[in-house]
Design a protein around this nucleic acid. Structure first.
Lengths: 166, 166
DNA sequence: GGTTATTGCTTGACATCTAATATATTCAGG
DNA sequence: CCTGAATATATTAGATGTCAAGCAATAACC
């Protein structure tokens, strides 16, 4: 028989009296963390790198002309100081490089040749992992989840920046 | 008119050629981070605390008899060393306390009186924030999302620990 | 053209987080 | 009791993350 053992997490502590929204949030967080953990573990063991570095390289791969620091910061949703640190580290490893920009305050960060090669290999594996981790849903359910999350995302943006509500 | 400006994030860089699963993962991550950021900002500005501390106190509030360090670690899905640091900090603030356990290797962490009072106030506000942040969905959609995420969660657990597959 | 504000990035102080290692306690056999 | 495996926690080094403060370059304004 072997019932699946309920693993204690944040959500399992939530009582029936809790608001639905709270349960939903805890479950959303749990799902994200479960996937993130797997990706982190595999990036480390298979490629000796980390998720933030992979994420940053991923953005650069889609922008061969390079991205400015604040663009990286916005896209990765982290602070500028954080981006500085990760770019420094990747640059030291020879995977990215800073190149001059017309605006002399700024510069563009690009993948080096070595960075492109390293990323290509990782991206392939990464996509397989994600497909595997999300294969608990049917194709139809993928679409439903994508649509529901789109609404969540849009609403959160409205809450976060309540400027110029037409 | 004012179309909602598409804010560049991880997902906006994903091209049409990308696998559906990858888009879904990026959107899931974006939603979680948007909500997390709001909660972090508000916990800081309104209560001068942080999300990890709130999360830890939240677990303790549901277990008045106290929790052991490794139980906290499992529930919060973070490493033990991390829990040590946060408990140290909360203990220094007088919000939690370590009490002896029959197993002399371990101890139980509990909220102090002050901790209970502080948490009660924060929890009230926190729940309101979550309700607000997730109010972009109808009651029906909340249920749908909860169900879809339950499947994701269950599948991830299977992938993460492929032990004793009946 | 000369302030003044803004922007782009870095730095420093600190909180989180992980992985690896160390120490103390319990437990399982003999 | 003794030995070794497993458990509970702490500790360390390093990476990631925030915020606030600072500097340099640009933009805005008169």
């Amino acid at each position: 028989m072997l019932q699946p053992v309920p693993r204690p997490d944040r959500e399992s502590a939530a009582s029936a009296g809790d608001h639905r929204a709270l349960r939903l949030w805890l479950r959303l967080l749990t799902c994200t963390q479960l996937i993130e953990r797997q990706v982190r573990l595999r990036l480390r063991s298979r490629f000796g790198t980390t998720l933030p570095r992979f994420d940053l390289m991923s953005q650069l791969e889609r922008h061969p002309q390079g991205l400015k620091m604040n663009e990286l910061s916005r896209r990765l949703m982290v602070t500028g100081g954080n981006v500085t640190g990760i770019v420094d580290l990747l640059a030291k490893q020879g995977l990215v490089e800073r190149t001059a920009d017309t605006d002399r305050r700024a510069f563009r960060v690009r993948l080096t040749r070595a960075g492109e090669r390293a990323f290509a290999e990782m991206a392939l594996a990464h996509e397989e992992w994600i497909v595997e981790l999300l294969s608990g849903l049917t194709r139809r359910e993928h679409g439903e989840l994508l649509a529901l999350l789109a609404k969540v995302k849009a609403h959160c943006h409205r809450v976060a920046e309540p400027r110029g509500e037409g």
